[in-house]
Design a protein around this nucleic acid. Structure first.
Length: 286
DNA sequence: TGCCCAATAT
DNA sequence: TATATTGGGC
């Protein structure tokens, strides 16, 4: 009745999609709310990035997708994206008036599933459920280790500013590549390389995060430091041991080239701005 | 197994 | 360049 789908409750899917909109501009907030409601979505609005983060943390499974502006006074939209994408693994759509390729790339690299240019129009909002849907496909697929396809790309963009970038221009693009040969390659389930999907973004070692890292190292002591211990002390839920190891390795490498042999940890950590702690190997020099 | 580390890949 | 992944060793 209410929509084109006849089936009673099972396939009303996009209807009632729970959207959180974050924008410091109240006017835009209102506009977006109206438009989204017209799409039969359930809309929550929020004028502050930090507030949004709190809401999301409190209602862990309360939303299906987040739409956020880039420029906000209390927190950079990318920062919000970083947190949301990693902490709760929700699709995030970034909006801004700025369609500069590098910024769009930044958004995508940080895990945005889409980048909308203001003014945002209905036709762009009507389809946002696809990002939620895509995530579902991924989840199912992970379980079934699906067969027959090697790779699926589903990309949507509403702008035409990609002429000098690596992304194709035009509207929606759906391309499905059939698997060439899978024979007995048991290495089935390759991760989808979906440039707009809800993949975890690579970790960005922000100053904040790095500081936690540094603090952890200082607590542990250079002689006993290891990725696992650092990870535990940092207490950042989404971070993995590999992430930390990789970060740690940067320091190690730097030291080895300039100071092969002993005391490399000490030398490298100093290079990273980590101050001394009570470790015997660090007692001399400096 | 889990962890660490170095090398290599992206 | 920064971060991820891989593979060997313990």
């Amino acid at each position: 009745m209410e929509n084109g789908f006849a089936s009673p409750r099972t396939d009303t899917f996009p209807v009632g999609l729970r959207v959180l909109v974050v924008d410091d501009d109240p006017t835009w907030l209102k506009i977006l709310e109206k438009m989204l409601k017209k799409c039969s979505y359930e809309v929550t609005t929020c004028g502050l990035a930090r507030e949004a983060l709190n809401i999301l943390r409190e209602r862990k499974d309360g939303f299906d997708i987040v739409i956020s502006d880039v420029n906000m006074p209390d927190m950079d939209g990318f920062k919000l994206l970083e947190h949301v994408g990693l902490e709760m693994d929700l699709p995030v759509i970034i909006m801004s008036v700025d369609g500069e390729t590098s910024r769009v790339m930044k958004g995508v690299q940080h895990g945005a599933c889409d980048y909308l240019l203001k003014p945002v129009r209905m036709k762009e909002l009507r389809n946002i459920w696809q990002h939620v849907f895509r995530k579902k496909i991924h989840e199912v697929k992970e379980i079934e280790s699906y067969e027959g396809y090697d790779d699926i790309w589903i990309m949507q963009n509403g702008s035409e500013e990609f002429s000098d970038g690596p992304l194709p221009s035009g509207g929606d693009i759906i391309s499905v590549k059939k698997r060439k040969d899978m024979d007995n390659k048991e290495h089935e389930d390759q991760e989808l390389n979906d440039s707009s999907a809800v993949k975890k973004a690579r970790v960005v070692w922000s100053v904040d995060l790095h500081q936690k890292f540094v603090n952890a190292v200082n607590q542990i002591g250079f002689d006993k430091v290891g990725p696992k211990k650092i990870l535990d002390l940092m207490n950042v839920p989404w971070l993995t041991r590999e992430n930390v190891a990789s970060h740690l390795q940067e320091a190690v490498g730097e030291a080895e080239s300039s100071n092969p042999g002993l005391h490399w940890r000490w030398a490298s950590f100093r290079a990273w701005g980590i101050e001394a702690v009570s470790v015997e190997s660090a007692k001399h020099d400096l």
